[in-house]
Amino acid sequence: MSISREDIEKVAVLARIKVDDEQVSALEKDLGNILDLVDQLSAADTEAVEPMAHPLDAVQRLRADEVTETNQREAFQAIAPATEDGLYLVPKVIE
């Protein structure tokens, strides 16, 4: 199955990855090949097969509601691109 330029551009916006025209052309070919590979799936008979999300049929363990974390802001913000007054700074958020 092939993937259109429009689909690639749309999905690149969803994934927040900037792509230029040249890259879209390369992706058209590469993603097309990958989707061809993936299309083998359609041949499988999966009637009445339960989807498998996890290798083990385990169930979730729940954690007791107890505070185990302490303030480590300084350590975390030491590796941040931009902070001020304890806040992470990003280009203006417009709602």
Binding site: A15, E50, P51, M52
Partner: peptide, 26 residues
């Protein structure tokens, strides 16, 4: 990332992601 986003996007989820999970069980 692009292939994965595409496989999960509206209209393709069942044909790709759900199908792959069923094949995974097989």
């Amino acid at each position: 990332i692009l292939v994965g986003s595409y496989a999960l996007s509206a209209g393709y989820f069942d044909a790709y992601y759900l199908k792959a999970q069923k094949v995974r069980r097989l």
